[in-house]
Amino acid sequence: MNPNASSTPVIQLTEVTKQFFHWKDPPPSLKRVLVDACRGKMPWRKRTRFTVLDNVSFDIYRGEFVGIMGRNGAGKSTLLKLISGIYQPSYGTLTVRESIAPLIELGAGFHQDLSGYENIFLNAAILGFGRKVTLDTAPAIIEFSELGDMIDMPIKNYSSGMLVRLGFSIASHLPAPIILMDEVLSVGDIGFQMKVLKKIQDLHQQGRTIVLITHDPEQVKRHCDRCIVISHHKKIFDGTALQGAERYVQIANESSVPLSG
């Protein structure tokens, strides 16, 4: 465990279960509700539940760098959305004690016709930051993104590499104590990837709490303090990064389906 980790957890999950409702087709419509009501049926009867996360508990402490691993569809992204506050738990309690920068997608809300500079403000506002913080951070963001004069051009003229560079620069420079990342480390060309990994390590050194979803066992081994493995909607491992990465490789190999990404 990281030495600068403190004793109160900043993210606390206690027996969290998340279920989604699934509407049997056809989807509900006003017409259906009226027709069903006339026939004396309950309009919502065709709803079934399915469980995406089953009774998951863990605590994350300040300053920890936690990797979350699991196969596609295991429930990792749902877990991240629960911690971000996009979804609410169906059962159990979830407490988050500090503010979060959710990097589920880089450049959330970017608009094609606005300049890179204008998009910095839009994106920062969407991520929940205020005007002053954004103004203060903008120069560092522009410098890190290596966009130079291109920053005043509409982003529809950017290459996809430039877009992710800008997106990552915004997200990593805003002062959020907790950073959630969904497979955003492998962005840009090799040169920028090195810069990204360096930046992430810097953030970790500064004592920020980082939660990273990844499929790459090497990344977990190299950067994380701790690893949580999710399989079939349940937490099956919570421990050191090395053991967690190995456990993930093991469950990935157990299945006959070849490992994807």
């Binding site: 608009h111 016709d113 606005l114 204008e118 403000f121 839009l122 506002a125 969407i126 929940g128 930051f129 205020g130 005007r131 954004t134």
Partner: peptide, 17 residues
């Protein structure tokens, strides 16, 4: 407020060019 301001500004800029 900052989010609302930025979204309105985006709308006005893109709507009226």
């Amino acid at each position: 407020k900052f989010l609302v301001f930025n979204l309105i500004s985006k709308n006005l800029k893109t709507k009226y060019h």
